[in-house]
Amino acid sequence: MTNARDEGFVLLETLVAFLVLAVGLTAAIGAVSQATLAVRGASEASRAADLAREVATVEMQALTGLGATTGEFEDRGAWRLVARELPDGGAIPLLAVTIEIRPAGASRAYRFESFALGAAP
């Protein structure tokens, strides 16, 4: 036989257990949310790297001078390529090339940098 005091103690234990469970579930939901955002960001960065590779393959082959060139991908985003000469004093100019990619639907733009040899004088 239980008395009222024992029943109150069991109720208190149950409430504390629910509180601990609620705190644990809240932390787990937060961790899943952060993981989802990280996966989405990694997917955007991967897509931007693929698009930058496409731009580099086509545009750096045809790179004839300094300055900026812009373009768009069919429903996949926009890009901007900037080429500037580095002061190395060599016979063949060394170009610093920056490619900025904004994939369609992405939360930010991504910047990639590389080097290319310019045309011999």
Rank of each mutant, 00 (worst) to 15 (best):
T2C: 03
T2W: 04
T2S: 03
N3H: 14
N3S: 15
A4L: 14
E7P: 01
E7T: 09
G8Q: 07
G8A: 15
F9L: 14
F9D: 03
V10A: 15
V10S: 10
L12I: 15
E13Q: 06
E13V: 11
L15I: 06
A17Q: 03
A17W: 02
F18N: 12
F18E: 14
L19W: 02
V20N: 07
V20S: 08
V20A: 15
L21R: 06
L21Q: 09
A22S: 11
V23P: 01
G24H: 05
G24C: 05
G24P: 02
L25N: 05
T26Q: 04
A27W: 07
I29K: 03
I29T: 14
I29Q: 09
G30Q: 07
A31C: 02
A31L: 03
V32S: 01
V32F: 01
S33R: 09
S33V: 11
Q34K: 05
Q34M: 13
Q34C: 04
L37Y: 06
L37C: 01
A38D: 03
A38V: 04
A38T: 06
V39W: 03
G41P: 05
G41H: 13
A42S: 07
A42N: 04
E44D: 06
E44K: 00
A45M: 10
A45R: 11
A45Y: 02
R47W: 10
R47V: 12
A49R: 10
A49P: 00
A49F: 11
A49G: 07
A49L: 12
D50Q: 13
D50A: 09
L51Q: 03
A52G: 01
R53N: 12
A56R: 13
A56D: 10
T57L: 11
T57D: 10
V58N: 02
M60H: 10
M60V: 08
Q61N: 02
Q61L: 06
T64Y: 00
L66F: 03
L66W: 02
A68E: 12
A68Q: 09
A68M: 04
A68G: 05
T69W: 10
T70E: 12
G71S: 07
E72L: 12
E72T: 14
F73K: 08
E74C: 12
E74P: 13
R76G: 00
G77E: 04
A78T: 12
A78P: 02
W79C: 00
R80I: 08
R80T: 13
V82L: 14
V82I: 08
V82F: 07
A83L: 00
A83K: 01
R84H: 14
P87I: 00
G89T: 08
G89K: 04
I92F: 09
I92H: 08
I92W: 11
L94I: 08
L94E: 11
L95E: 04
A96K: 13
V97I: 13
V97G: 13
V97Y: 13
T98L: 15
I99Q: 00
E100W: 13
I101C: 01
I101F: 01
R102V: 12
R102K: 15
R102F: 14
P103K: 04
A104N: 02
A104K: 03
A106S: 12
R108Q: 15
R108T: 14
R108E: 15
R108Y: 12
A109D: 09
Y110E: 02
R111F: 10
F112Q: 05
E113V: 11
E113R: 14
L117Y: 11
L117N: 09
A119E: 09
A119P: 13
P121R: 08
P121K: 06
